[in-house]
Every structure is written in C-alpha cells, then in structure tokens.
Amino acid sequence: MLLVSILTGFIVFGKAIHALSRIGDKLWLDPMGRGLALRTVNSAHSAYACFLFSPLFFQRYSLESVSEQGCKTVRCKLAMKSILPLFRCLASIERNVAQCQIAVSNTHSDRVVIQFFCRHGITKTHNLRFQDSEALQAVFSSHLCPNVLRCSARLAAPLKPLLTSGEEITLSTTRLRVSLRNYCEEGKGEPTLPTMCTEMSLHPDEFDHFQIGADSDVTFCLKELRVTGFIFGDSIHPDMVLEAIVVLATLTDSGSIRPSQPAETLNGSTPR
C-alpha cells in the first residue's frame, strides 16, 4: 500500500501528469523505496518519459513492504483520461486546496484514492480503479553512450526559440562544438523540400560536462521534449527533489557517424 500527502507541491505533481498526458494515454504509478515514479510511453513506443518524486518531495510518504502487505508490490496502470480531469484546472486547485493525499492499494478493491482537502473543511474524494500491471521501464544503458552532455538550466533560455518551432531537430556533436538545427517547409499545396530555419552552435565550455566519443548527427521529434519543458518553469523550487527522464527514438545516418578518437578506443562499436 502507498500513502502520500502533498502539502505545497501538488501543482508540480499535477503539471507532471499534464506533461505525460501529452505523450501517452496510460499512466503507470510505480511506488518504490526511492520515491514515486510516474511513467508513460507513446503508442509507437518511440517516446518514454518518467518523473520520479523523491520521498522528500512529499509531506508524508508511507510505503508498506511486501512482507507487511502480504502481497506483491503495488504497480498500477491508469487510463490517463481518468486521472487528468482531477488536475485539469491547476490555478483553481492552487487557490482552493490546502492538501492532496493519494492512497494506492491492491489488497481489496484495486483503487487509487485521491483526496483534496479544500479550504472551509471541504474534502473531495475520487476513487479510480486501476489495472495491475508490470512496471513500465525503458531499456537503455546511458553509461555505455559515447557522448554525454550535461548543462545547467541557464542554457535552456537561449535554446527556447529553437525548441519551440518546427517538428524535429537535428543534434550534431563533435569534439569542438555542438550544433542544433531545425527545419520548416515553405509553401502550401505541392510538396516542397524543407529549408533550414534556425541553427545554433554551442562551445564545449558552455556545458558542465562535455564528453564526445564519436561525432554524430541524430534527429528526433520535438513534441515530447516540449511537453516536459515545465520543469524549467517558475513552479519548480531548488529544494524540490524531482528527477525527469525522457527517452526518444532518433533517426541516424550511419554514414555521418565518425569516431572522434582513434578507432581502437571504441572497440569497433558503432554508437547508437
């Protein structure tokens, strides 16, 4: 059984659900010792997103062990359309709700119970039936990737115009620079070739961590990346313990991948 109480962070929690709803139509709730994970995947299985809320994020985080429950760990899958309306009007929730409590149990009714403790002593209770499911988890090995870029949130501001236009973006990496470019189509009616709209280059010194093991060019969809951009908003405070993971399928031209180091250091492997 899971029981969490959210005192001041339910707006961020609601925004996470809103962001995930733009990617997939199912929401996986995965309570763990290290926090509560909210996950989803799109219908094509080309985009996966997860928000992990640490126990420190909640006013109260109570997770009974398997031995205490006498049953398997709770992992549930909800229809996004059933939970999204509860967090539809976040501005109204912020004005009227003092606390949000979420309880999950599969011992009796397989329900997620969400309660909003509103001002003036009003309590709103919602019972959502869930489907018992294996935990959703994207399989990837980030520690095996030859290229690793890490930057602070300040770098997001100059990139915003580039990330808010177009449907796809191409990320090119070398040991000397990182460039991002997007494309748009001009004209209507007859198909036209895409023309380059915007390109931005970044120097390695602008990153907190810059590791390039192989020159590469990959193209990925911007839709899923945009909807998770709320993490840079004003609602996030430095003391909130929240981790976001987005995994996107990419298009890659194998002929454009060139080793940045001597070939023997890559052990003949082709980065993906």
Rank of each mutant, 00 (worst) to 15 (best):
L86H: 04
S142L: 09
S201V: 10
F220N: 14
D205P: 04
R177A: 13
T164P: 02
K160W: 05
P85M: 06
E186Y: 10
I245A: 12
L225G: 14
I169V: 15
T164M: 08
L36M: 06
F210N: 03
M80R: 03
F232R: 10
G187D: 13
T123C: 15
T125I: 11
D234P: 00
A16Q: 03
L29T: 04
L163R: 06
N96F: 08
K81V: 07
C145N: 13
E167A: 14
F10P: 02
F130N: 02
L56A: 14
D215P: 06
D205Q: 14
L193S: 08
A103L: 01
E264P: 07
C151I: 08
E167R: 11
L27K: 05
A37S: 13
K188P: 00
I17W: 02
I236E: 00
R88I: 12
T250K: 02
L20F: 12
C76Q: 02
D132S: 13
T107E: 13
S165W: 01
T219W: 07
S133M: 10
G189E: 12
E64L: 09
P194Q: 12
L29S: 02
M196E: 14
R272P: 07
A44E: 10
L171K: 10
A249M: 04
L149C: 07
V97G: 08
V227P: 02
F220C: 13
R175Q: 15
L78F: 02
S235W: 03
T107F: 03
S172M: 11
M200H: 07
F210G: 03
K81I: 06
L176W: 01
Q59E: 15
T265D: 15
F116G: 04
D25E: 09
F230H: 00
T107D: 09
T228S: 12
N42E: 09
I169Y: 02
S133C: 11
S216Q: 12
